[in-house]
């Protein structure tokens, strides 16, 4: 064991003696935000830390840990990160489909949204689909739990019929527990008779 420790020390010493002068190792650039929200990346820790909070603001860090600001541009970012950025998966999208009273039939007004959902799901590679059914507050909790699940299952069936090659589709019913618009019990509310679908 002692011999191994000695050997490790020797190896470490060997590495230290051939250590080259610091050179740039890491380059970071903040990119414009999709939603336009204000955001930041903190480079490093403690007193030396540099905050990047402007689009195309950047910094380099060398092998000795020295941080230096170095602004970038769209063209330069594309040159260095083009392949990585091209591989970025699309953002998760959510859709809301509305349903006729006490029915698993999508309303006429939601047909277009349904078509958009199917087209988007078909376009995505290895898409994961989360389907959550809801009802308004008319009827018993037990009936609404069942109806909300039936609505979610109806959407799942349509996805399958449209040959969507999802890696998984999860359909759940939440009954009347999570209304979009809060109402008194037994009050009909078209906006609560819905299925929410998330494509990821």
């Amino acid at each position: 064991m002692r011999r191994q420790i000695w050997l490790a020390c020797l190896m470490l010493a060997g590495c230290a003696t051939v250590k080259p002068a610091p050179k740039v190792n890491t380059y970071v650039v903040l990119l414009p935000e999709e939603g336009g929200a204000s955001t930041a990346v903190i480079v490093g820790e403690g007193a030396q830390a540099v905050t990047l909070d402007q689009p195309f603001g950047g910094a380099t860090v060398d092998s000795a840990g020295n941080i230096q600001r170095q602004a970038s541009s769209a063209a330069q970012t594309d040159q260095i990160f083009g392949a990585a950025l091209a591989a970025q998966p699309p953002k998760a999208l959510s859709f809301t489909l509305y349903f006729d009273t006490n029915s698993t039939q999508v309303t006429a007004a939601s047909r277009l949204q349904l078509d958009t959902l199917m087209a988007e799901a078909a376009r995505r590679q290895a898409v994961e689909v989360q389907v959550t059914g809801h009802t308004d507050r008319v009827g018993s909790d037990a009936d609404n739990d069942r109806l909300s699940l039936q609505r979610a299952e109806a959407v799942r069936t349509m996805l399958v019929q449209n040959n969507i090659k999802a890696t998984f589709i999860r359909a759940v019913g939440r009954g009347e527990r999570e209304p979009l618009v809060p109402t008194a019990d037994e009050q009909a509310e078209p906006r609560n008779r819905r299925v929410e679908v998330i494509l990821r």
Binding site: P32, T39, G44, E45, V61, A64
Partner: peptide
Amino acid sequence: TTILGVRGTTF
């Protein structure tokens, strides 16, 4: 050589 703290962002 460093650690980046992410404050909800694209980079």
